[in-house]
Computed example of a mutant assay.
Amino acid sequence: MDATHDSPPQAPRRGRRVSRSSASMADVARLAGVSSQTVSRVSNGYAGVNEETRRQVLDAMRELGYRPNSAARALKRGEFRTLGVITFSLSTTGNVRTLEAIATAAAAEGYAVTLLPLAVPTQDEVRGAFSRLQELAVDAVIVIMEVHLLDAATINMPPRVQVVVADSDAGDRYTVVDTDQAGGSRTAVEHLLGLGHHTVWHLAGPEDSYAAQRRSDAWQATLTEAGRPVPPLVRGDWSAESGYRAGLELAAREECTAVFTANDQMALGLLRALHESGRRVPQDVSVIGFDDIAEASSFLPPLTTVHQDFAEVGRLCVQAVLRKLRHDDTPHGTTLVPTRLIIRESAAPPGAQ
């Protein structure tokens, strides 16, 4: 019998030659001298097949070039063990590191990842991505983008596909995992005020970014609660080049002694602009970034910055979406991953030597 306990394998039965491109389970069974049921059990990794039989079946698969039909097995089980990830940018540090963490966490749970990158962050592109999901074998989707792009009424979610969103404020409509943007920003501003700066200027991210808005809101609220003046906001687009352009503007303001920058890349451009303008960091201007990219400790001077745990965000996204797969009635909500301030050499009391 070829059930739980296999009898010793028979000698392989040699028969007709089979094309490697057309080998079937029956062909493998015939060559290995076992039943199709045993081949199926080996293909699906079930226990109860003795090792000699298993090796014989695997040898026959290799000889014939047979590959188990994973799609058919998935349909039979009702799952594909694949997660889709939709994101519109692979150029930002946060998205790349979050995606890497998602792939690692998914693999640890026995899931593969299918990436659907968007060319531009528009509702048409998002609709197209969800349409493509109808054709792909995915069990759930993790979305790394601004949530307003999901608000288009014409977006049709694939049936029974669960969705988790990273970097969003949509906890009432989707399950959300995010960094504590506000908490990290508050810590940065309070640190600069604690060093003795009268106020803190802010180099913000793009206007349509949820993360940028959360950080600038927290900057303003912290200054207001401390009874400090709120300087005019200066805006960039996350790039070092935009930080450089904004930095030239800030360097021309003698009253600017401290800047909280919404990400480390813009802080890099700001540092260059301050240096070229003859403003020393941190003696004349203190600078704090946000992200704690790998290169932050190699900036000149090494950058004080808010550390985001992208690995934890990715892990929790996978954990949340698998929980929803296993329990459809899991309520929506938001999980915030704490930040911490990494103190280096780019921030000091005003006038420090």
Rank of each mutant, 00 (worst) to 15 (best):
D59T: 11
Y46H: 15
L58H: 05
V42M: 06
M61Y: 05
Y46F: 15
L31S: 09
S70P: 00
A119H: 13
A105V: 01
G84E: 01
A105H: 04
S43E: 06
Y46Q: 15
V49C: 02
A112I: 01
N44S: 15
T114A: 14
Y66N: 05
A108D: 15
I102E: 01
G128C: 00
E51A: 11
N95M: 05
Y111L: 12
T92H: 11
E52Q: 14
R20P: 15
Y111D: 05
N44D: 01
S91V: 08
F80K: 06
Y66K: 09
S89R: 09
I86F: 08
D124Q: 13
S40F: 12
A72M: 01
R30L: 12
D27A: 06
P68R: 11
Q56C: 13
V49Q: 08
G110M: 09
E125L: 01
A29H: 08
T93F: 14
R77C: 06
G78R: 11
P117V: 03
T92A: 10
F88S: 14
V57S: 09
G128W: 00
N95S: 11
L99V: 07
E109C: 12
D27V: 02
G48Y: 10
S36F: 00
R62P: 12
G84H: 00
R55E: 00
V39G: 03
A112S: 13
F88M: 00
N44Y: 08
L116G: 02
L83P: 12
D124L: 08
L99K: 06
G84P: 06
A29K: 10
T87D: 14
K76I: 01
T93W: 13
G33P: 09
V57K: 09
G48A: 04
I102V: 07
T92S: 15
A71M: 07
A26G: 12
V57G: 07
T93Y: 10
A74M: 07
V96L: 14
R41Q: 12
A47S: 07
S91T: 06
E51Y: 00
L118K: 05
L31H: 03
L83Y: 08
V113P: 11
A103I: 03
